[in-house]
Amino acid sequence: MKVIVNVSRKEGVLDPEGQAIKSSLNNLGFEHCSDVRTGKQIILNLDQNNETEVLKQAKKMCEELLVNTVIENYEINILKD
């Protein structure tokens, strides 16, 4: 089963990369773009078919390694074929 983990910075955590992208977009004429936040996507392939178990495992992976919960939020989605 394929799992997509989306990791984003928490509200209030500085995102200098997002700010640099925003200022570049503004320079290109997209003046209405008032904020940009960046994040990352991690795609996992798990040899498991039980959805509940897959979600449980993915959550454990996030808490133990994939996410720094001090500054990041995460969202887990199962990719359906």
Partner: peptide
Amino acid sequence: GSLIRNNKL
């Protein structure tokens, strides 16, 4: 705490 990207990239 946490160590994040330098403010000026």
